[in-house]
Design a protein around this nucleic acid. Structure first.
Lengths: 132, 132
DNA sequence: TACTTTTTGACAAGTACTTACCCTAAAGTA
DNA sequence: TACTTTAGGGTAAGTACTTGTCAAAAAGTA
């Protein structure tokens, strides 16, 4: 990940904000565009790197790897690498990551409900997105 | 908001991704660092611009205004401006925004649970964050 | 031998996000 | 008169995010 200037104003203020706003705390962990999407796809079970790439077609490999690394170092995702050639790496949600299930479900439900209002509904039911 | 190059690869791919992944759909609406934080603060009732600024001390005015505008144009937030001097503007959640309550609650609950594991818990209970 | 497969790493370049600083309007107050 | 208040707008500059392209490693297959 790109290094962040530690001394900037926000960085300092964030210290206190983290202790005041739970959402701010969560955004530090899974904020950004890709992380929730990645976590959601892992909700249905562990996936190989290439499976994730297929499941999230519009993410670049760069982003996928980068965010998986961050998620791993934040303890939300477990990485298992088999020492074979070609490489075989699987990612899955850790217990801590699994604790995000209600959040991801709430997100998906909102999207499904909101998407249904359109002429051509985007999604039908939550069943389309099986959970392990 | 800064204009987005419509012809980029992701933009095109997003079209299809939106119809496949509900989380992607939601991230298009409230993705990013600040929006969930703003929405969370509006959960406890409508707020004046200056109240929001106080409640979220580390956001710059630029960001606050920009995201409020986007949230308004996405129909999640209502803006009421009284034609007085000095200006008096209040923001509140629309019905559509209110529908995000379960999402925001799930987020807050996760943060509270996760924060409790630390030596010095970040938050105590959800009661600290009253909801209208 | 040449090509394929899988999971990345390195680097350069472009795009988006965020900040910092200065400015306004018009009434009320000192 | 001078200063304060509120809700932003404008511009420039810095920082972070994202992409695109090139490359490796080592076994298996044509």
């Amino acid at each position: 990940m790109t290094k962040v200037k530690e001394s900037s104003t926000i960085q300092l203020n964030k210290q206190t904000a983290l202790q005041l706003c739970p959402i701010t705390y969560l955004m530090e962990k899974i904020g950004g565009y890709w992380k929730p999407i990645i976590l959601f796809h892992l909700l249905s079970g562990s996936k190989r790197y290439s499976e994730l790439k297929k499941a999230i077609p519009h993410v670049t490999e760069k982003m996928l790897v980068q965010h998986l690394k961050q998620l791993e170092s934040d303890g939300l995702v477990s990485r298992v690498s088999l020492p074979v050639v070609p490489p075989h790496v699987t990612y899955s949600l850790s217990d801590k990551g699994m604790a995000l299930r209600p959040v991801l479900h709430a997100m998906a439900n909102w999207a499904i409900a909101d998407g249904k209002k359109m002429k051509k509904p985007l999604f039908r039911t939550m069943k389309e997105f099986p959970v392990k």
